[in-house]
Every structure is written in C-alpha cells, then in structure tokens.
Simulated assay, not measured.
Amino acid sequence: MATEARPTALRTRIVLTIVALIGLVLPASIASAGPAPNHSAPKPTIVLVHGAWADASSWAPVTRRLQDKGYTVFAVSNPLRGLSGDAAYLAAFLQQRTTGPVILVGHSYGGAVITNAALSDPDVRALVYVNAFVPDQGESVLGLQGGGGDPSALFDFVQYPGAVAGDADLYIKQTVFPSAFAADLPSATRAQLAAAQRPVTLSALSEPSGVPAWKTLPSWYLLGTRDNILPPALQSTMAERAHSHIVRVPASHLSMLSRPETVTDLVITAARGR
C-alpha cells in the first residue's frame, strides 16, 4: 500500500505544480493575445482660417497656446479673392497638409470659408466659429449684413488688375478701423493692424454660399458682445440656427487677439467633442 501511495502523491505534486505554473503564465498569455486598449486618442489637427482685413498672424496668441497644449496647428493664409475659390484653396490645403482628424476654426469671413470647405474632407470633425459668418446655402456675407448704409463711408475701394467689371479690393478706412474692428486693443496695436490689413474683394463678400457643413457637423461659436463689425444679434441668430454651442465674451471683432485664452479654451472643447 505504501508503494502505491508514492506514485499517487508524486502525481498529485506534479499536477499542483502545473496548475501553479498555469496560474502564473495565463495572465501574461491573455495580455499578449491582443493590444491594450488605447485610452488616449490622438489630438486632432487644428486649422485656423482668418477673415477679411486680417492675416494668419492674427491667430498667433491662440496658435501658441494650442501648441503649448500639444496640438498640431496650421494658420492658413486665406486668399480673400472669392468665396468658392477660397474654399477650394482650403480644401486643397486640408487634403495635402493634414492627416487624421481636423478641427476647422474660422474668424469673420473665414467662417463662411470653413462652412463651404469642410465637407470636402471626411476627416473634419467639428467647426469653430469666432465672431464669424455662418451662411446658409444661397446667402452671402453682405446679404447677411443687410447691405444697408453707404459703403464708401466704411471702405476704400481699390481697383486691382484683372478684376471683373464692378469688382474691387475693399479696405476698411484707417479712421474707422480702430473703433469698428479692434476697439478693445491698445491704440498702438489698432493703428498697426489698420495699416497692415489685407483686403477682400467685393465679389467675395457678395458671392452666394454653397451647401453648409454646419448642417451635418457639430459646431461651437464664440460670440463677441462688443463687436462693432458683425452685430452680436446677427452672430446669435446664425449660431442658434446652426445649433452651435455658444460662448459669449465681452470682446471686439478681433476676440482672438483680445481674448485668446477664451478662444483657445473653446477650440480645445471642440477638439475634445464636449
């Protein structure tokens, strides 16, 4: 009986040893069976589109803050030559210079541009409007403004080579620019911006908008309540029509310069989809 017990005891010890080894090895085997879940999705690329009478440098304070947060940022040079052409330019930029998810941010007339360009790229995840025009199909920037008043009181008209009959570059009069465009910035800054403004064509502001991306993409809107160019009431109407998430801030038309922290926070909120 004692002789038969030894093999049985030995077999028992072997079985227990194997079970113990399986208990040690199995978790590692399960872990290696598939990739660990990715809890940190890649940050989307942020593409900033300036409006009329400004340039890409107007985004500099926002660009720096977004880069500090680890975002890849492009501040596009908007041609300001015509709405459909400017949208096509942005579409080509997106296709050739970005990969992965994209958040489009438009200021002023740039809002109309991103509205028309976003659907060209399936990687665009959201739209952010900053004191911006949000046209529906068939609407124009001038039409949304109502087209009232004497344009010669606000603009200097400059004929440019190759312009179609009746078209011209529009500059905001330097005497009007500081109070209308940048009332909450230092006086020296306002004067510099007025001197360096990039013109937009009259035809760009008059051209009807195409199919609006805001009907199928989520959007956020920063509304400057002290904007003397784009009336806050019109901003509110357009933002509400687009079902945008609205943030109101006591800022002039150039809120990305006077309130860059608020603009940056809104862009990050859109990037996170919240």
Rank of each mutant, 00 (worst) to 15 (best):
G166Y: 09
S152L: 11
V158N: 03
S84W: 04
N116E: 13
E139L: 07
G111D: 09
R81K: 14
N116D: 15
T72S: 12
Q96T: 12
V141E: 08
R81P: 08
N78D: 15
Q95V: 01
L80V: 04
S187H: 11
P178S: 03
Y160A: 12
V128Y: 04
I172Y: 11
R81Y: 06
I172Q: 09
G110A: 02
P79K: 01
G100D: 03
R97W: 10
G110E: 08
A182G: 14
G146R: 14
V128K: 01
L119Y: 05
G143Q: 08
D184G: 00
A165E: 12
P101Q: 12
G143S: 12
V164G: 14
V141R: 00
L83F: 05
Y71Q: 03
P161I: 04
Q197M: 10
D121P: 00
L154Q: 07
V158T: 15
G146L: 14
A75F: 05
V76H: 06
L90G: 00
Q95D: 15
Q67V: 13
R125Y: 11
A188M: 11
T98P: 01
D123S: 14
A182L: 07
L104N: 01
T189P: 06
F177L: 05
G82D: 09
S152V: 07
R97E: 13
V158A: 11
P79V: 01
A132L: 04
G111L: 02
G138T: 09
V164A: 15
L83K: 00
L154T: 10
L185P: 02
A126Q: 13
V76S: 02
V164E: 15
T72V: 10
L144K: 09
F133T: 04
A87R: 00
R125Q: 15
Q95G: 14
G111W: 01
T98L: 10
D167P: 02
L83G: 00
V200N: 13
D121C: 03
Q159A: 14
D136F: 02
